[in-house]
Amino acid sequence: MITLQVSRYRPGQDAEPVFQDYEVPLRSDWAVLDGLAHIKDHLDGTLSFRWSCRMGICGSCGMTVNGEPRLTCGTFLTDYGEGPIRVEPLRGFPVIRDLVVDIDDVLAKLAHVKPWLIREGEELPLTAEYTQTPAQLEAYKQYSMCINCMLCYSACPVYALEPDFLGPAAIALAQRYNLDSRDQGDRFDLLATDEGVWGCTFVGECTSACPKHVDPAEAIQRYKLTAALTSVRNLLPWGRS
């Protein structure tokens, strides 16, 4: 058996989150999420948490495990020795109940960066293909692996301090389209702002937290360079577009 110290917040009952201890079987094939499911099924049906696929692709089971933002489906009980394991909601977000956080802000930010292929001018028939070379695919593929689990936001101290900060996943998502050869959009006005890339101080923890190796920190630094050079070019009388 291993002890899970689970953060509980029941609106109307708790003024602030409190920890509750549960003993769950320590099985080598059990992730933290299996331990939480065991609690809900057998020990305490009032515990609330989000989960879906249990295989690291839906991005809904992100929580803070022993202080680190983790996907609980891919974080195994045996990684923590004798325990106890402390399970808290993702940091940096308002807590709705127990381990469930309010993610509306990030969802709005993801939509804000126009995350779709923007075409200008010609309307090709729907049957037309936009072919890409392997090199063109490789240019943005890494950034398309994001599963919107929001671990990067939870790891980012800038987001916790400045909730207006556009944040790692949204900027990486914008770069996913900026670097796509089929995209003709211009996201400069969305990204090159004080709340956009200029808000980032390159802590780098978003990249450490990412379970999909997206490297949002790299996406942000690359766009800082792009945006800085574009800004300088716009300053030159012959450079204005």
């Binding site: 804000h112 556009l166 006005d189 702002t193 709340e195 200029w198 800082k224």
Partner: peptide
């Protein structure tokens, strides 16, 4: 998050 002039790039 509207676009505006910012000295940050420089």
């Amino acid at each position: 998050m509207r676009a505006r002039r910012t000295p940050e790039p420089y």
